[in-house]
Every structure is written in structure tokens, then in C-alpha cells.
């Protein structure tokens, strides 16, 4: 097995004449928190969708845990936990039922109670999905991504809609999950989050990787005080 957990080489994906991802390459090592940064429409979500086998790339090579996400889709779903931006649940499904349902999908699931407590959803087991606040839905979605004890967690817009307290709790949880050896792929356009959590990041713009490195390197190379300033300079240049 190679040293990288995720390898993406020259990924290209178009919808009709619209090129969503032009040429994206990056690698993620085991136990890393890797951030994919980019403005809206930069190609982040399409990249991730190819990576988890929801879409088939037009060109390029992807390996996740040494496997092809398209061909070995079922095998990988057991080891990759996913939190989607718009993946929802039935309105009347209760929190406890959702956890029990998703537990039944995996051979060795995590403890639902513990996970809900860590995500601040303790005592919400009987609440239907439709009655949850935006932030609670988001946290339930994270819980479902982690319930199967994945080797890799792919989290799209992790803390969108969370208040500052919930956001920090979630960051702490992600750090803890990583400390257990889980590799984390974080998709975000929220720079303080990337700065705080990510070991390395790739900035995607117009379907290509502009730069990749540690948040500190990127900030220093652009001669800016924060990652957000560096990001704005980088992605504004070619806009």
C-alpha cells in the first residue's frame, strides 16, 4: 500500500460544455487533515463527488485507500464516511432512528449516544429531522458521517450554519477523530476553519489547483497576515 491515503492525478470533469474541474491533482497522507479551499463554483464539490464515487471523472486517476472510487464503490463506502452539503433525511425520521438506521449499514459502528453527546445532540433522540435547527441538522449529518468508524471522513462545508460555540465544539471533535487515526478531507471556503484545523490545504480556482501547502506557508508566500488575506489575493488575481 502506498503512503498516500488519497491520490488525485489530473482529474478532469465537465458537464456538457461547462468544465467543472479542469486539472486537479493532490495527495493526502494518513492521519492528515487536508483542506480543499475555493470560492463558490471553483470545482470543490465536483472534485469530492468524483472522490467518493458519486460521479465518474472524464479523465484522470483517483485512488482512495489504493482503490478506484468508481469501480470499488461499495468497498470504499464501508471505510469512507461522508457529510454532504445537501444530503438530507426524511422529515419525520427521528434523530435516534437515523443513528440506528445508519449504524445498521456498517459492520462495526460507533456508539450513537456518545457521538450525539460529543456533537451537542444529547436528549434530541426523539426529535424529528424536520424539527431540528439548521445547526442541529448539520451536526446530525456529521454524526452520520462518523458512525461507521471510517478510515477517511469527507466533510463538505463542515461548520456552515453553526454558531461560534458549536463551531468550536465541532472543531475539537474533528481534532479528536483525527487523533484516533482518521484521515480528514475538509471542503470549505471558511478560512479561519482551514487555518485552525488543516495540516495542509489546496486552493482550487477555476477547476485547477493554484497552490498547495500548509496554511502557514501559503500565508507567508503571499506576504499576508492571515490565510484569508492570502486566499483573497490568490483567487482574486485570476478572477
Amino acid at each position: 500500500m502506498s503512503a498516500s491515503v488519497i491520490e488525485v492525478e489530473h482529474l478532469h470533469k465537465a458537464y456538457g460544455t461547462t468544465v467543472a474541474v479542469d486539472d486537479v491533482s493532490f495527495t493526502v497522507g494518513p492521519g492528515e487533515i487536508f483542506g480543499i479551499l475555493g470560492r463558490n463554483g471553483a470545482g470543490k464539490t465536483t472534485t469530492v463527488e468524483c472522490l467518493i464515487g458519486l460521479r465518474t471523472p472524464d479523465r484522470g486517476r483517483i485512488r482512495v485507500l489504493g482503490r478506484d472510487p468508481h469501480r470499488d464503490h461499495e468497498e470504499l463506502t464501508r471505510r469512507v464516511g461522508v457529510q454532504l452539503q445537501d444530503g438530507q433525511l426524511p422529515d419525520r425520521l427521528r434523530v435516534g432512528e437515523a443513528m440506528r438506521l445508519y449504524q445498521s449499514f456498517y459492520p462495526d459502528p460507533a456508539d450513537a449516544k456518545e457521538l450525539l453527546a460529543q456533537l451537542g445532540l444529547k436528549g434530541r433522540e426523539k426529535t424529528p429531522y424536520a424539527k431540528l435547527s439548521g445547526g442541529q441538522k448539520q451536526r446530525l449529518s456529521i454524526a452520520l458521517a462518523l458512525i461507521g468508524r471510517p478510515r477517511i471522513a469527507v466533510l463538505d462545508e463542515l461548520t456552515t450554519g453553526l454558531d461560534p460555540h458549536a463551531r468550536r465544539d465541532t472543531w475539537d471533535l474533528i481534532s479528536e477523530v483525527r487523533d484516533q487515526g482518521v484521515t480528514i478531507l475538509l471542503v470549505t471556503h471558511f478560512m479561519p476553519e482551514a487555518e485552525r484545523l488543516c495540516d495542509r490545504v489546496a486552493v482550487i480556482h477555476d477547476g485547477r489547483v493554484l497552490v498547495a501547502g500548509t496554511p502557514a506557508e501559503l500565508t507567508a508566500n503571499e506576504g499576508q497576515p492571515t490565510l484569508e488575506d492570502a486566499f483573497v489575493t490568490l483567487t482574486g488575481r485570476t478572477a
Binding site: 467518493i52 461499495e74 454532504l84 444530503g87 433525511l89
Partner: peptide, 10 residues
Amino acid sequence: GVLRRLRTTP
């Protein structure tokens, strides 16, 4: 997106 979400599970 219920079905889409399930596509990412075994």
C-alpha cells in the same frame, strides 16, 4: 437528497 446520501453508504 435522501437517496443521494444513501449512495455514499454500503
